[in-house]
């Protein structure tokens, strides 16, 4: 093999590598751009609940469920693609799974506290909380009143004090 031929081969191989690299770069850019566009669309999907175009009624629970689902989807996109976990080795599970568990448990551990404040077995908020907290909105006040009346046989106008 002459020196000239070797040089030609080397150049061809280099061009081939450059072309591959160019394709990779192009593909990566396209992938990241697609993810970013998906994230913006998902943000719009969250905002959708706030607009008049939301077709699934005024149920706050449905809206909140939808928004949280969209947020989880967005976070997953960022973690998988932007934080490169898609291409990482198995170590990723060691660091991310326990932290995610802790994160969910930490939030769930606080849920009973919300429950104890509202559904405390005494017909809702304690008298003390009602007296010292902010005003109860009108519609909630009516519901509360009806609930307490029902719970106490319609004799007591005020919720019982929680202990």
């Amino acid at each position: 093999m002459s020196e000239h031929e070797t040089s030609q081969e080397h150049e061809t191989s280099h061009e081939h590598e450059t072309s591959h690299e160019h394709d990779d770069v192009h593909n990566n850019y396209r992938l990241f751009l697609t993810v970013a566009v998906l994230l913006v669309i998902a943000t719009t999907a969250s905002y959708w609940t706030f607009t008049d175009l939301w077709p699934f009624g005024e149920s706050k629970e449905i809206k909140r469920l939808w928004m949280m689902a969209v947020s989880c989807f967005k976070a997953s996109l960022v973690i998988i693609f932007f934080m490169h976990l898609k291409w990482e080795a198995n170590w990723k599970w060691i660091l991310t799974v326990p932290a995610s568990f802790m994160c969910v448990l930490l939030t769930l551990a606080l849920v009973p506290d919300v429950g104890m404040r509202i559904f405390n077995g005494f017909g809702g908020y304690s008298r003390e909380r009602l007296m010292h907290s902010a005003e109860l909105p009108g519609d909630k006040a009516e519901q509360q009143h009806a609930h307490v009346k029902h719970a106490t046989g319609g004799e007591d106008d005020h919720p019982q004090e929680a202990h």
């Binding site: 660091l95 991310t96 326990p98 932290a99 995610s100 802790m102 994160c103 969910v104 930490l106 939030t107 551990a109 606080l110 849920v111 506290d113 919300v114 404040r117 509202i118 908020y125 909380r129 009602l130 907290s133 902010a134 005003e135 109860l136 909105p137 909630k140």
Partner: peptide, 28 residues
């Protein structure tokens, strides 16, 4: 960085969890 982010996840989970408790446990 990943270990640091693990602690950060729990830091913000605590903050957001507290917000949820106060938000939904509040009378108004």
């Amino acid at each position: 960085v990943w270990l640091f982010l693990s602690t950060e996840i729990m830091f913000f989970a605590g903050l957001i969890g507290t917000y949820i408790v106060l938000r939904f446990g509040s009378i108004a």
